[in-house]
Design a protein around this nucleic acid. Sequence first.
DNA 1: TTGTACGCGTTATCAT
DNA 2: ATGATAACGCGTACAA
Lengths: 345, 345
Amino acid sequence: MTIKDVAAKAGVSVATVSRVMNASGTVNPETEKLVQSVIDELEYSPNGIASSLKTDRTHIIGYVVTDIRNTVFTFLMAAIQNVLWEYNYSMMLFSTNGDPDKEASILRFISMQKIDGAILNSCTNTQSIIQLNKKIPVVLTGNDISDPNFIGDFVDSDNHAASYMLTSNLLSNGHRKIGIINGPNNLVVSRERFRGYQDAMAVLGMTINIDNPLVYEGSFDVSSGYLAAKKMLSSASMRPTALLVTNNEMMKGVLKYCSEQQIKIPDDLSVVTIGNRHELDYLYISPTYMETNLEEMGERLARLILERIETKKRLPKRIFKLPAFFHDGNTVKPLTPIEANTIIS
Amino acid sequence: MTIKDVAAKAGVSVATVSRVMNASGTVNPETEKLVQSVIDELEYSPNGIASSLKTDRTHIIGYVVTDIRNTVFTFLMAAIQNVLWEYNYSMMLFSTNGDPDKEASILRFISMQKIDGAILNSCTNTQSIIQLNKKIPVVLTGNDISDPNFIGDFVDSDNHAASYMLTSNLLSNGHRKIGIINGPNNLVVSRERFRGYQDAMAVLGMTINIDNPLVYEGSFDVSSGYLAAKKMLSSASMRPTALLVTNNEMMKGVLKYCSEQQIKIPDDLSVVTIGNRHELDYLYISPTYMETNLEEMGERLARLILERIETKKRLPKRIFKLPAFFHDGNTVKPLTPIEANTIIS
DNA sequence: TTGTACGCGTTATCAT
DNA sequence: ATGATAACGCGTACAA
């Protein structure tokens, strides 16, 4: 069932059928009606592949993440999908599993599949990204690359502000021994969240470097949150009075450990986190957290990539930091002056 | 950078280059080496679109779900992806958001995109599925369709057995007033889970129909679990002593409600569920549950669709019910004979 | 307004 | 072993 069949049956040329299908060029209303009826009758649908070969457009964008099971990615993905669907684009999904080699081959694969554009979430292979970006528009989130050869956009929430604010909140509640359970340091998102924490601590004169025992580098997944908690909380006397856990997933792991070890929140430990409202509002506890608006981020990412695809211009790089919002919960215990003093000493 | 450029630079014909790229036909080792070097030098990568047009193969499979944010789908997706990647296939992802119209247009879209095959998760539009299946191989999960015109496979865990076993467990612990929070009745997965519960209750002479107040039809997501709990548990005197919650997501909603209302598990309420180990083992509580092995299911789905694609035969329909495994937790309180009697009366 | 014909980048058939 | 060439199904410049 091709365009030829339709043309033959309608007694017109393939050009006319094509014009009717794409509403392009001029076509007599009567012939249009005729052609349309044949199209309906034969249930003709054009071959997208052939059309792509001709127009050099697939109407597909690629979304690359490190692990599909991470809810941050899935919520982002859902938001992206909504926009894409609206504009008649569809999504091809790839997961690197955190493997740099796999990431490289995925990016290579994307460039030969003639996908129209790509959204890369937490990709780290700078050279591969630049290589891909030479052929198609690319926007980034989670990790940015500073190489001037990269001409694309970067979108993320204001991670520095988010952890700065949460850390300040803990400090103003009297906490001083504040730990951070963070993501991989090779991602901008992690480094920003660490810096926010670091800067807030510095205000009270505390200098915390990356090798401080209060700092844990996890991998943004549930099990690393669990392991981090195990490491940092096992000794009741040494442990921090508060923890900044920098994403949803690791937060679940921390809560699991606390529950197993009968560590009461907030009585024995205060906890704050950064994440997604839809996840955090359904925990058994109401955490104090900074909300990253994943709907907005996903929508922004999708609109940016579509803009770059449609206006074929190589627009200069743009960077967006979306605001995060404070949610007050009941996971922070204000320390009395005595407690605070004890701990400071 | 096309195959022509490579041919020209290597001083051979496009046919030879094609043979080298695809390791097809015969080619002199020396010319092969030469051609390969030119390919490397020019960093030539073939145009997948053109190749698809010729071979009628895209090496893409479509995965359709109702809501990407549901972890059941994401875990399944991850498993499917692993297999696809191994066989050099990639995945296009679609989300119906539970909208029948959107489902129909997605399935239509898939058939014109010349995707090689489709995995449909909880799709309900029988006619659209059959229509799609006329053109490409299709395998189903979550919801099956009984129409003989559908020639594909169905894979799911043994849902009847899972809820039968959990209900029996509650019964043998003395519970009688057992509620079920279930998914949409238009899905086979929900109906099977309900039947398992129903059959187990029937063993003790209790006939429970779908309109019984002990039965709640939710939508397999967190908020419907929350709402269900709210409805079923609000009156302390009337409420069931135990609940069978038929998936992960709704379980989170139930736990949230219980936590808010200070309903202690298992003291005030026993709870059992069906779901994914990776999720359930990281709750703050250790639930008694039946594990559905999503890795195995996903892998099976992927292999089945690939099999149907590669052996172009229209194999007869096959149905797979994968076993679920019992995990004993601490969310079921054994009722003393007195308590049990009180409740029965 | 409509039709003819070429080309998109491959693969595959058939000669050589 | 290799090369010339015809498809694959569509869009579109150009001609009519």
